[in-house]
Design a protein around this nucleic acid. Sequence first.
DNA 1: ACGCTTAGTCGAAGCGCTTCGAGGGCTAGC
DNA 2: GCTAGCCCTCGAAGCGCTTCGACTAAGCGT
Lengths: 335, 335
Amino acid sequence: MVTIDDVAKRAGVAPSTVSYALSGKRPISGETRERIEKAIADLGYRQHASARALASQRTDVIGLMAPLRVGVDVNVIMQFVAGVVAGANASGYDVLLVTQEDGVLDRVVGSSMVDAVVVMDVEAADPRIPQLSALGRPTVLIGLPAEPQGLSCIDLDFARAGALAARHLTGLGHRSIALLGSPAEVMERHTSYAERMNRGFTDACEGAGAQHLVIPTNPSVSGAEEAVERLLAELPDVTALVVHNEVALPHVISALRARGRSVPEDLSLVALCPENTALAQVPPVTSIDLPAETIGRAAIDMLTAIIDEGAPGEVRLIAPQVVERGTTRAPRSAG
Amino acid sequence: MVTIDDVAKRAGVAPSTVSYALSGKRPISGETRERIEKAIADLGYRQHASARALASQRTDVIGLMAPLRVGVDVNVIMQFVAGVVAGANASGYDVLLVTQEDGVLDRVVGSSMVDAVVVMDVEAADPRIPQLSALGRPTVLIGLPAEPQGLSCIDLDFARAGALAARHLTGLGHRSIALLGSPAEVMERHTSYAERMNRGFTDACEGAGAQHLVIPTNPSVSGAEEAVERLLAELPDVTALVVHNEVALPHVISALRARGRSVPEDLSLVALCPENTALAQVPPVTSIDLPAETIGRAAIDMLTAIIDEGAPGEVRLIAPQVVERGTTRAPRSAG
DNA sequence: ACGCTTAGTCGAAGCGCTTCGAGGGCTAGC
DNA sequence: GCTAGCCCTCGAAGCGCTTCGACTAAGCGT
């Protein structure tokens, strides 16, 4: 292995000079710098990451905790991951991706493997939050716990998204609306986004005086069938639907069709999902985009602001927007 | 920060003894071990990862190179990623996920950030392969280049998959079959899996004396439409279809339906895609599974075999299997 | 001509850990 | 009773890098 000493020797300078040339933390004359650069190229020198990390107390690695829990769609999680990684790489960081649950935080953060952490799938009262506060590393949560305890958070504004979906439909004249939402397990964990979505939806329906119903939906063909059964049983004159469940979405549409309710003729539908999921439906559905890539990149921006400028904890919620793709219209009776 | 010296002091032993107690590389008496463990617990000691890596020359981190190239489906890539991470965590490794392209290999491997590498989206003559050979770190490729140069490879046997799909259809009596495959960009890069798939498909069709056609398909609604147009123009009496394109799949089905060819009544269809994609179609389609999770875990197994036992390079191809879900049947004329 | 600053470089002291060789204290063998 | 051998532990020497203080030479104003 070629070390900084080898480079120094070949360039005829001290190792510290090479280090300063590399980091730019002290001025180096042009001539010396050139000799050093040549030596580096000749020798094929590469800094040893661990040695640098040990001496400088920074690894330039960001930890990304993305638990793959039952009930959350891997594809959705992974879209966030892709966004975070892209953002991190663009900012000169690498990403250590961890999907386990248990002692990971302690291990990865406690052992100084990472300079900072991004945490996903946050529950309302997430046990990791006090831990993270205690650890004292720069942290950004993707999600919004009840008590952020000074940690930065970023997420889609699910409360507004739920409300927006509801109002989009009541605005068209619908008076009987259901939300087919996250699976029961996710609700039972008090997963932040699911609770906020439901509350936003429910409040807006009540504000508009519309009948409403929330049905937890399992992410499977049968889950979609069951949800549709229950929907038609409990709210037979339903005219509009919000679906917040990527996996169930296509099967909800087909289950409805199989029962003689087609979208959008008989039933309006707006989904909350990543854009590509909305576009993958037949027909593509009107949706509120879950901008995973954007959120991932924003999380990194917030993190670098904390690392570099000691920025304080901040909560940033992305405003939801409806993208019309033709699956919502006024109800029959009102049209 | 509490160091190994603090622990040693509190336990009344030498730092090296603590180190040996931790690593188990030398025997430690039960009594001493207990004192050390108590001291660790009392102090909340955590090993410093970089220090350990520097001294021991291993990081227990695996690098995962997953370039997010145009034309490859993020979701599919990310399913592999999830499998690799799960496997790695289970084997005591963490994963550094990199999606950039350029100098990454050099940077990440050259700087000793990782003990080993998993490389995805391998092209037939991938420029990274000589690099990887030269770097000399344990490596597993997910994919199969023309010249593995001693590197280990794992992948679905796409040649057999293409052949299997074709024979499944010819076996049912189909004599005019098309493959809607990877986008043109992917083919132009000579991406390994796409080429193998096409060749397997083509050879099997010729072997069975069936008319065949391969249509590169863009992963979008319009791409699917164009492919279907071209299909019906160039092979008007087509009776069966293989689709190897996750994104286009639903739109291919609906484009066919819109042109009066429904699946499976008029046209049999078998897809090559992850199971969840097959299940997400309406109706769920007969498919050859792309077992991303399995392959990811197997990649880690092969890697640990190389790391721990110095296992030699090995090429492992997973046998494809058709899972019947009702979208293939005998053609009309033959039925 | 004088001290002052500034630019450019050096040497040495760590960062926290692992590992090697050595050595003390025992038991066992004869 | 002495030594061979084993078990357990210690101390010291790094791993490759950063960073601090110090030093030299040159440039500046007065």
